[in-house]
Design a protein around this nucleic acid. Structure first.
Lengths: 335, 335
DNA sequence: TTGTAAGCGTTATCAA
DNA sequence: TTGATAACGCTTACAA
């Protein structure tokens, strides 16, 4: 029992294959009656277009390749937002996961195998030169979502991490904090911009910077917990801790809470992302919100802007985070 | 600047296209020297196989279609586990997301368009007749992961929700609880089995069942919060609440905590899944753990067992949850 | 409005 | 070990 083809429909109806193709793609060149009959036959035979054959013959692809890490909830949210955004322009999406055993490069190579018109790489761990190397092989426009700076190889859609962290730090300073530490995830490309936002805001207020690095780890609770333990080893705690993302913040929060340090009574803690963790009322984290829907839409817009236009240079699209005030921050302890 | 094809490599090296194909697929029939030269040319030209052309010509597909909901973290974890499992058998994975604007049926149709050898549908909202209808159109083996019962249309890989909830209820009864409520998500197919596990365990202990339904909602914190409010409206609270999953449990937990009800001092709460929420030390939920890696592996095994063997009947593969004891449960309040 | 012919990049079959 | 030829299902250009 073979899958039915256009030829089967044509034979069934008594017209040529090409006419079936015209009808099924809604192209001009077939009578209303023919359309009706062909469509009916397609339905009764259970016809389904063969993507392989289609992509082979079509001059311009109508597919967008998207790579993402399923383990990262934020990236899944961005993916979800991209579906309607792409569909609005008549594009469909080919997904490829980057996992513990699959690098960004492998994921990109896979979608390239489907001859996508453009590629969106979400939250990669790749450095700029590595990304540029990937792009050179791609021959189609590439958009990096999450991190990166202006360059002439690929578009970047990012939230302005510096602005977001700046908002958070300004909020803490306004509350009266003077000793504000920052938890820095060295291995994450997007962390650098956030760190700069911290340094700028702290320096602008004439305060002393205090960066706690978590080398070799990344945006995880474990990294935050490590930073929390490092802070507890000190003679005196800062009055506020700015984490690079929500998960780190949760890790810091848990370590400090378990050690009997009151949050926010003794130490205020902030995150970045406004992930599901931050929204839990038992955590209720003050944070800088990134809107995944906005990022997804921006990514689709960015890649389609350059599809089929090799002369258009890549650009940077900034999405501004917004400050979300919750109960993990308060004025500094009186001591 | 066209993408290079096998013909380009053949011309570059001075051999036939077919030989290039043989070399690139590691098939017998080419000399060592030819292989070396062809591979080298492929690398320098930046050759990448054309999936469309390949899938059109190949008699047997080497692709597995997988549909999942990115919004559901557990499903993403299962997807992640499937990559290495599939790769071990030489299969690669074609992903398709079910989102708020994209049904399971659409997602399945899409992967079918890529002529996959088999399909894995993770955590669908489809009923059994709906799934059977999908399978009838598919013509390749289909595996449903998460819910479903024995049937002759598709395989089912599920965690034994009844066993898992049974473990949880038995634990509560052993702690001394006598009034144990259950939060039931009517709209989720997998919830029914869990409910039966509750009813069985409660009935077996000679206790009275107390099912709180959350009609029209599903496995969300909001559903749990609604159930929590319903409980608070009562004259007397149960001493333990068994939620259908972790997210519901978190919702119940938050509503009760905010109302000043101590957990676990006054009410014990349990979940199902052992998701990231359950593992947060501020939530620290007693729950029944489903191992996503095990589910993913089982799904791949199940679908490959029937690929190319139309006579093998579908089956049910049970993955047993395990009880994870944390601090959201304790003996009942003395009153 | 409809049909004809060609070809996309690959694999499969068979002959050299 | 290698090469010629056909075919997969579809789209495109053009002729009827």
């Amino acid at each position: 029992m073979r899958e039915p083809t256009m030829a089967d429909i044509a034979a069934h109806v008594g017209v040529s294959r090409q006419l079936v193709s015209i009808v099924l793609r809604d192209m001009p060149g077939a009578s209303t009656e023919t359309r009706r009959v062909v469509r009916e036959a397609a339905a009764t035979l259970g016809y389904r277009p063969h993507m392989g054959a289609r992509s082979m013959r079509q001059t311009k692809s109508r597919h967008l390749g998207v790579t993402f890490a399923p383990a990262h909830a934020t990236e899944s949210d961005i993916v979800e937002a991209m579906y309607p955004a792409a569909a609005a322009h008549g594009y469909s999406i080919v997904l490829s996961a980057q996992t513990q055993t699959r690098t960004t490069v492998q994921a990109v190579e896979e979608v390239l195998g489907y001859r996508c018109a453009g590629i969106v790489v979400i939250g990669t761990e790749l450095s700029d030169p590595e990304m540029s190397a990937v792009v050179a092989r791609a021959k189609v426009p590439v958009v990096a979502v999450g991190s990166g700076g202006r360059n002439d190889a690929y578009d970047v859609v990012r939230s302005t991490g510096d602005v977001g962290i700046g908002l958070v730090v300004a909020h803490l300073i306004e509350l009266g904090h003077r000793r504000v530490a920052y938890v820095h995830a060295e291995s994450m490309p997007s962390a650098e911009l956030r760190r700069q936002g911290y340094l700028g805001a702290i320096g602008g207020a004439g305060l002393e910077a205090d960066v706690v690095s978590t080398p070799g780890r990344d945006y995880t609770e474990e990294a935050g917990a490590g930073a929390g333990r490092a802070l507890l080893d000190r003679a005196v705690l800062p009055t506020a801790v700015v984490a690079g993302n929500d998960q780190q913040a949760v890790g810091v929060l848990q370590v400090l809470s378990r050690a009997g340090v009151g949050v926010p009574s003794e130490v205020s803690i902030t995150g970045f992302d406004d992930s599901r963790f931050a929204q839990l009322s038992s955590i209720d984290l003050t944070t800088a919100r990134q809107d995944p829907a906005q990022m997804g839409q921006a990514a689709v817009d960015a890649v389609l802007r350059r599809v089929g236009r090799p002369t258009v240079p890549p650009s940077v699209f900034d999405v501004e985070p917004t400050l979300v005030l919750r109960t993990s921050t308060a004025g500094p302890r009186q001591s």
